[in-house]
């Protein structure tokens, strides 16, 4: 049931417990308690909103930064990752396989803000060997959902 709940709310966290209960064939109490349990266990970590900022007059830039770092003895990459993700500007941090170590996704108001953050906060850290910054030009799809929603129902109204 937990997996069914997660699959159902993965793309729509607004769905109510009452509706979930009907759709999954469970009681509302059961759903509420399972969701609470998963929140307590940090299986569910939050309920953010997917916003297409390009649609409103609000300057906002996203950058993806590749980092090469020196892992620390006994701590691996966790310590440096933690130092980085504490910054509010940082949206995501992933440890990667392949040619570099960490991917950092940053959001800022302007390119200058992002550039400053990289050069003043990230690059000077002792463990960081190199950075490569890529700016996002346009977002097409995020969290499995297309940001450009143009589809409408083209089916005939009544068909046998």
């Amino acid at each position: 049931m937990k997996e069914k709940i997660l699959a159902a709310i993965d793309k729509n966290s607004k769905i109510t417990a009452a509706d979930l209960a009907i759709m999954l064939g469970a009681t509302e109490e059961e759903i509420v308690s399972l969701i609470k349990q998963m929140e307590d266990e940090s299986v569910i970590c939050g309920y953010p909103t997917l916003i297409n900022w390009d649609k409103i007059e609000y300057e906002r830039v996203t950058a993806l930064i590749e980092l090469k770092v020196t892992p620390q003895r006994g701590l691996g990459f966790d310590k440096i990752a933690e130092r980085i993700y504490q910054f509010d500007e940082v949206q995501s941090v992933y440890l990667m396989s392949g040619g570099f170590d960490l991917t950092v996704i940053l959001e800022g108001r302007t390119m200058r803000e992002v550039a400053n953050f990289v050069s003043e906060k990230l690059a000077p850290m002792d463990a960081i060997l190199s950075t490569a910054t890529h700016f996002v030009l346009k977002k097409y799809k995020e969290h499995g959902l297309p940001l450009v929603q143009t589809k409408h129902d083209e089916r005939m109204l009544i068909t046998p």
Partner: peptide, 13 residues
């Protein structure tokens, strides 16, 4: 139905 403009349909197969 097709003459009705903003109808919501639950009629498709």
């Amino acid at each position: 139905v097709s003459e009705m403009k903003d109808a919501i349909s639950l009629g498709v197969g």
